[in-house]
Amino acid sequence: MTDGPQLQRRAVVRTLLRDRGELLVVAGLGATAWDLASLGDDPRDFPLWGAMGGAAMVGLGLALAQPTRTVLVLTGDGELLMGLGSLATLAAQRPRNLRLVVLDNEHYGETGRQPTHTARGADLATVALACGFPQARTVRGEDEVAALREELHAGDDLSLAVVKVALTDDPLTLPPRDGSYLKHRLRGVVLGPRAGFQ
């Protein structure tokens, strides 16, 4: 494993979300949702506990509904592979306030570490570009992660970044499980006191 990806997913997420301001985050199920929760429970987060393949589209809906806020979809390679067509749908809409970051450890880490297609050559950044994303790239180095954090906040167009991360065992940090609670809490952040009336 020494010549595999070296970046640590928890550290990557911590760097990307440092001083996040009003950034809203939708996290795909499994490890990325636990990564997000490792930073603390936050009302600006919508971590998924299911709906595999749906994270990017939840992000699109939120981004279209709130065009003045930046929305980050944080997900894993397995989750995005299940909804690969959504990359074409996102590119066709091209919401300028939506960013995707894929923490790619090339494995289904939650289910026995079976390799995903990215371990066998599938290149998600190239797929995104081929779907029409204006920007997409793969990040492998520590210094690139800091630069990516700046781009997430300062960028003004749809983008995708694949961050190659090590296959690690991280402490289990779980967000709240009640989807209705997570929903109402995020709507409170986004809509304020009128959230309960619409």
Binding site: Q66, A92, Q93
Partner: peptide
């Protein structure tokens, strides 16, 4: 009305959920 063509119908389910999080109806 923002019209969003999909590659598969399940995308539209997740899209509607996200739209509601942002206070719009789909």
């Amino acid at each position: 009305i923002r019209v969003v063509p999909l590659t598969t119908e399940e995308e539209g389910v997740a899209l509607a959920a996200g739209a509601h999080l942002g206070g719009r109806r789909a």
